[in-house]
């Protein structure tokens, strides 16, 4: 069972104050901390769990600048066997389609039975790369997967729908699955673990290595472009209660009481 996992390095915004940069098309990233995209982390764990169960290899692939190597190191520490880094100035500024195109060109050359990706990324949030990749590779896909079993050449998956409903599907392999959070419990990756793989070789590829011209990838090869970023209006709908903890709690209790909810 050879599995390919697509991962992405994204900023962790939990603690950050977001500032739009001067180009208006991106946010200020200098002071941000980065990490593997949350969804990809679950996808990676799922791939390694499958490998531990069924044998085979896990190859992890990312597209990004040189800093993106850190998510590949992390993936190797988790248990991936190979790492491929699509790193070329020409890849910059690509949309989901252009990204998927580059990934497809690289993956097409490798042996694989299954391709896993996160259901979406914490930055762009297109939720598009996995299914686009599948179509470019000409294989079936399922998105938002919350459980996965492989039985020979068949993958049985659960997809998360709305309102607590899930659907159970079967797909013929090879296929692309996009993984939803919560599918597993990703393992901890220690600093020692990352150090252990520090000298492992990473396969770095440029657009030309994939037989792609600069016009086909990155911003040039995209079907959409970002015109402008803005911060959503901060306008509040209702009242912010002011005062000390005791005062605001008292006010709120009074509001509840006036509605008759404390009877």
């Amino acid at each position: 069972m050879d599995i390919i996992v697509c991962v992405k390095r994204v900023p962790d915004l939990a603690e950050a104050d977001i500032v739009i940069d001067r180009s208006q098309r991106d946010i200020e990233k200098d002071d941000l901390v980065f990490d593997i995209n949350e969804w990809d982390n679950y996808a990676l764990e799922e791939a390694v769990l499958l490998k531990e169960k069924l044998g085979g290899t896990v190859t992890t692939i990312t597209l990004g600048d040189e800093d993106a190597e850190e998510v590949l190191r992390r993936a190797l520490a988790v248990g991936a066997d190979n790492a491929v880094h699509l790193d070329d100035a020409a890849f910059a500024g690509g949309d989901a389609y252009a990204t998927a195109k580059a990934l497809a060109a690289a993956i097409r050359e490798m042996p694989y039975d299954l391709v896993l990706a996160g259901a979406q990324a914490g930055d762009d949030g297109y939720g598009q790369v996995g299914a686009t990749l599948a179509e470019l590779l000409g294989i079936p896909h399922a998105t938002l997967v919350t459980s996965l079993e492989v039985d020979g050449k068949i993958a049985r998956v659960r997809r998360e729908l709305e309102a607590g409903l899930e659907e159970v599907m079967e797909l013929g392999l090879p296929a692309v699955l996009t993984i939803q959070t919560g599918i597993n419990e990703p393992r901890y990756v220690s600093i020692a673990g990352i150090r252990r793989v520090a000298r492992r070789e990473i396969d770095v590829r440029k657009a030309s290595d994939l037989g792609l011209s600069a016009a086909e990838v990155g911003a040039a090869g995209s079907k959409t472009e970002i015109e402008k970023l803005s911060l959503p209006p901060a306008a509040q709908k209702g009242d912010i209660l002011e005062g000390s903890t005791a005062v605001v709690a008292e006010k709120l209790a009074a509001i509840f009481a006036s509605k008759g909810w404390l009877g």
Partner: peptide
């Protein structure tokens, strides 16, 4: 820790 699989999730999240 080095193995990572049995680290309790709350500890794992805190360390991250």
């Amino acid at each position: 820790m080095a193995d990572g699989r049995k680290v309790p999730p709350t500890v794992r999240d805190m360390l991250r």
